[in-house]
Design a protein around this nucleic acid. Structure first.
Lengths: 126, 126
DNA sequence: TTATAATTGGAAATAGTTCTCAATAAGAGG
DNA sequence: CCTCTTATTGAGAACTATTTCCAATTATAA
């Protein structure tokens, strides 16, 4: 399997890399359309999956909605259950935690997806 | 809004409470059918959502598949990317982490969903 | 330049879940 | 125990996000 660097793949990647927000596939599609990049919807899906499998972007879901994140670095998520927004924060996961999981459970951690649910600063003020 | 304790709601709850595994809605449906409990599929979905909203069970997703977990206590998940199984472990999240999120980001954490992805003991041996 | 097979587009198919709506039944109050 | 209100149910239709199909295209190696 030789991977090919197609115009469409590059454009999908460019579209999401430049935005520091979590995007749905439809939103990526909209950005491409706005920039006059012609890419089919199925191809957008295919390439978002391709890119996240190859760790160039991240894929995650919240409340049944799938999002893609141009930032490939592991980071934790805060999800406000009031306004439904989510925020990125640097990961609180420690190497210590990972070695503990390895020692106690024999499980070698390669990646992690952490979501904290609660109420954000803004919504707490109200 | 007065919640009612219907036969169906109790049966859905009983079906998932007794199993210490992560179940899809279809699997819960199958258990009910096996036990000769007649509950419609839509009602199974409705009650699984009802129960998780009321924190009697937990709902989460992995790889695009939604699972329900009869154990309402917050706990972390290990997800093996080789055999695709997942395991529960006691949560590594510390109160210290939660207060840090509150102090640094003004975000009040009420719940958390942690998944560590990697390779399980069994699959590492091979 | 040619050959190979990865990739694409667009439509159709799929799968999981929610919605619709008339019928049923749980719980409150008399 | 009866009556009333309305939450809940069942069954199928509707919905929606995503994947699949397949013929046409095109990136890459030789």
């Amino acid at each position: 399997m030789i991977y090919r660097n197609t115009r469409q793949r590059k454009e999908v990647y460019e579209a999401i890399k430049g935005v520091n927000k979590h995007l749905t596939a439809e939103q990526v599609m909209a950005i491409l359309k706005e920039d006059n990049k012609k890419v089919g919807l199925a191809t957008v899906y295919r390439n978002l999956n391709y890119l996240s499998e190859n760790k160039l972007i991240r894929k995650f879901e919240e409340n049944g909605v799938v999002f893609y994140d141009g930032n490939p670095e592991p980071h934790d998520h805060l999800h406000c259950v009031v306004c439904n927004k989510h925020f990125d924060i640097p990961s609180l996961v420690k190497d210590k935690d990972l070695s503990r999981i390895e020692n106690e459970w024999g499980f070698k951690v390669e990646d992690h997806f952490m979501t904290y649910e609660g109420v954000c600063e803004n919504c707490r003020k109200k």
